[in-house]
Design a protein around this nucleic acid. Structure first.
Lengths: 107, 107
DNA sequence: ACAATACTTCCACTAACATAGAATCATGGA
DNA sequence: TCCATGATTCTATGTTAGTGGAAGTATTGT
């Protein structure tokens, strides 16, 4: 995973509303949640919500699935897993920090 | 770990120069590295470097140690560990993602 | 005390981000 | 076809972040 990609992923999550959206979608699992429902749960205006969903989608952290006139967004666990692996390997590996290296959350 | 803290930590790392600084310091271990040396390695102007070091320090990701007229900055592994734990527990926990939950990089 | 070195703060500028009302697009039902 | 609904895009506005030259602070050696 490239350093530039990592920065984009971190930037995507480094915002209150977006982190909240992502955490919400993680709980929902692959089924995801409609834009309207997300907006309702988090009390975010449609335009603002759309903006943040676009950001998360662009980063690859969530993915859209159209169903009729509803759009379901779901967390992309693979991307999150890659990010966590990078962070663990590159940001937490030193003499003082080499006890347990084997991490992995989603296989 | 609070959600607001997490956003601050992610924001601190979501920048090319800062991620590079942190990764560099992680490799150096507790001994850390002087500001001058960091600037030399990454080719960053003094004022810019100082700005980013301040940001990382404010987030709690690095810590300063004065030695004579040199200031050594070292990665704060505890903070990084807490962040990784939060991310694993809150951003990667769903039906489709509950295989191995036990992660931890620095004890 | 003076000069040199190591960093930081100040400042001004530019670019990027966040927000939301209004307009628009797309889908499904009457 | 027309309308209602779900979601996005357009547009405007305010805020925050990143950059680096110049000036300031702190420490060491002479």
């Amino acid at each position: 995973m490239e350093s530039k990609t990592v920065v984009n992923l971190l930037a995507a999550l480094a915002q209150d509303t977006r982190l909240a959206i992502f955490r919400l979608l993680v709980v929902q699992g692959p089924a995801g949640m409609t834009v309207g429902k997300i907006g309702e749960m988090l009390a975010v205006a449609p335009a603002t919500l759309s903006f943040h969903l676009k950001e998360l989608n662009r980063a690859g952290l969530i993915q859209a699935r159209q169903e009729g006139r509803f759009i379901h967004y779901a967390a992309n666990f693979d991307t999150m897993n890659d990010l966590l692996r990078f962070m663990t390997e590159n940001c937490c590996t030193a003499a003082s920090c080499a006890t347990e290296q084997e991490n992995s959350c989603c296989g």
